[in-house]
């Protein structure tokens, strides 16, 4: 029978292993795509896994300062996803405008 802190240490080791696997799978997803939103979703997921990683390391080392880093990373990750969503919208609008220009030129 293990004592509590020993079990917790073992649990952090196991979680780090599982999170590493999750990180690798997410990177695979980002590489294979196939579309732009899929890749952005992968990046969003990557941030979530990284937050989990940082929290587990905070518990393992006992430096609670990591907690602030995790929260700050969550904020930055959220803002980046919002920025990417806007980017997808903007790109589509620019594409549409370009297509209409093209059509108008063809008509002339």
């Amino acid at each position: 029978m293990m004592s509590g802190p020993e079990f917790l240490h073992l649990a952090t080791t196991i979680s780090l292993g599982i999170l590493t696997l999750a990180l690798l799978l997410t990177v695979c997803k980002i590489v294979i795509g196939p579309s732009l939103p899929d890749r952005v979703l992968g990046l969003d997921m990557l941030v979530a896994v990284a937050i989990g990683y940082i929290v587990v390391i905070a518990l393992r080392t006992g430096f609670m300062l990591y907690l602030d880093i995790a929260i700050a990373l969550g904020l930055v990750g959220f803002l980046s996803t919002v920025a990417f969503a806007r980017f997808i919208l903007q790109r589509w609008e620019i594409d549409k405008a370009a297509q209409e220009d093209h059509r108008e030129e063809a008509r002339r």
Binding site: F7, L16, L21, T26, M45
Partner: peptide
Amino acid sequence: DGLYYLAGLMLIAGALFSLVAALGIL
């Protein structure tokens, strides 16, 4: 000790949910 065990199990459960999410997007 019970608290430590609970926290350890929660860590593993959280990591497993992250893994399932990664599997899900694949």
